[in-house]
Amino acid sequence: MKNFFNNISATIAQMPQWGLIFPIFVLMLFHYFVIFDKNKTEEKPELNTAPTENEMKVFQIVNELPHNSKVLILVNYGPESKYELESAMSALIGVLAEKNIGIAFATMIPNGIESTFTAVEKSIENGSFGKERFVYGHEYTHLGFIVGGNVATYLIANNFDQVKERDIFDSSADIHQPLMSEIGSISDFSAVFEFSSQTFDGVPGIVSFAVMLKDKNVKKIAFCSSDMLSAYIPFRGSIYLDGLIGGFKSIAVFIHEFQSSFNIEKQYSIMSKILFYIIILVIFSNLTRIAKKNKK
């Protein structure tokens, strides 16, 4: 038995660094071509996870948003979290568009501008509403990149009339954006959503916004990527956060609930298998370490 472990540990030690990534790549291709090839099997992967209490709370908030109201979406993620957050944001845009809810986008990081427009395009492509029903300036608007991190959150929370003066294309709010002409302050929004893959000076953007917000009745919901989960999760039950969808599992559950056409079940299934493979790899490498110690 010891010899068996020693032989394997010697083989692993000889492998180059990319050798550990290579099996992940092979595993992904295997799943795409063999297991989930739609030409070969009719079986669709299922999302074997039920929504948690916290996720249900977010579903409830989204479902209870009044028709024809307005929401603000802070887009604070870039390409590094596109594959996690873009589908969730597109799903949310789809739900809001179906209910004729006006959306104002704003971003506190430069990359957020591009992220917003790609998410809107994706949601138009996949949604049941047409491009003609989702018009810039009427159904949605983009207030651009608001510079300053926590200073920007203060501006958004307390001086929104200044923030909304002009949009990203430098158009005046009152003339070119009928949507914004109905908004006076942040209290006129039914909810504020944040899609985030980073914090500002160590503080989650929505938390900083909530601390500075005088009107505590505005609903605050955050969607964060997996790497930001440890920063957001401590605020889950606090007065600063009414709902949190954090990490790939919660995002998959959210998309499954609101936009089933995105086929998130397949991605979730592949990801869970790869994670299982990594856990096996970690256990195995620890076993070889023990075997090495025994040899000494």
Binding site: Y32, S81, S226, Q267
Partner: peptide, 25 residues
């Protein structure tokens, strides 16, 4: 969590390659 996030990014890129080459999906 950071590792998971990067894996999802990696998976997204693989998906993109598949779609671009018009294979899979």
């Amino acid at each position: 969590y950071t590792l998971l996030s990067r894996l999802i990014l990696f998976m997204g890129k693989i998906e993109f390659i598949m779609n671009a080459l018009k294979i899979g999906f």
